[in-house]
């Protein structure tokens, strides 16, 4: 059952991921944004399969909720026409990039499959679950966050403050 769910969500995530980068519906970025929201949702489903409930909820709330609203807001604010979007050209750089990326992907897939051949590892999702029954809950992650990762957490808050100030300074016409 879990395996079937994994494949359903994985195939949906990859297909909508392809729609993000190479949208078959047209050049309008709104299609990409909708496809990206779907990808994020299916990835949240994968997180639930991995017992990462807190991250799954956060994925929906922060990514699909906050960041994608920002994206769609900007897309509609710009209201791009055909000539503003510009044309896509195939250059030698892109072909070289494609070859390099595909070589990297093949290498990585080969490494993962080889490592699995040498020492097969399976995740047991239903027989008992993780050893810690609270694994992945808000309490578990929160305790880790405020004990072991306190300094990165505070640095992140400073980063967000800098980003807020930077976004206002950049987007405002006159300060």
């Amino acid at each position: 059952m879990a395996l079937i769910l994994f494949f359903v969500f994985a195939i949906a995530a990859v297909l909508s991921g392809i729609c993000v980068a190479f949208s078959p519906f047209g050049n309008n970025p709104v299609y990409s944004a909708i496809a990206l929201i779907m990808t994020l949702f299916f990835l949240a489903c994968e997180f639930v399969l991995l017992h990462a409930t807190f991250i799954a909820v956060l994925q929906i709330l922060v990514y699909a909720g906050a960041i994608m609203v920002l994206f769609t807001f900007v897309i509609m604010l710009l209201n791009l026409s055909k000539e503003e979007i510009g044309e896509e050209r195939l250059t030698l750089t892109k072909v070289v990039g494609l070859v390099v990326v595909l070589i990297g992907l093949t290498y990585q897939i080969g490494r993962v499959i080889w490592a699995h051949k040498v020492a097969p590892v399976t995740l047991h999702l239903t027989d008992g679950g993780p050893s810690n029954p609270a694994f992945g809950t808000i309490q578990d992650v929160g305790v880790k966050l405020f004990q072991d990762f306190l300094v990165p957490f505070e640095v992140t808050s400073i980063l967000l403050l800098v980003a807020i100030v930077g976004a206002v300074v950049l987007a405002k016409r006159k300060i």
């Binding site: 059952m1 879990a2 395996l3 994994f6 994985a10 995530a13 990859v14 991921g17 392809i18 993000v20 980068a21 190479f22 050049n27 970025p29 990409s32 990808t39 990835l43 994968e46 399969l49 991995l50 994206f71 900007v74 897309i75 710009l78 979007i85 510009g86 044309e87 896509e88 050209r89 892109k94 990039g97 494609l98 990326v101 595909l102 990297g104 992907l105 990585q108 897939i109 993962v112 499959i113 490592a115 699995h116 097969p120 590892v121 399976t122 995740l123 047991h124 999702l125 239903t126 027989d127």
Partner: peptide, 30 residues
Amino acid sequence: NTIPIHYFLLLSAMLFTIGMLGVIFRRNAL
């Protein structure tokens, strides 16, 4: 009911590659 760990890793690699190809091929900043 068991899922091999490398399925998740391969899914992740595929999504990363799709994103990277999007960065290389698309010229629309958004």
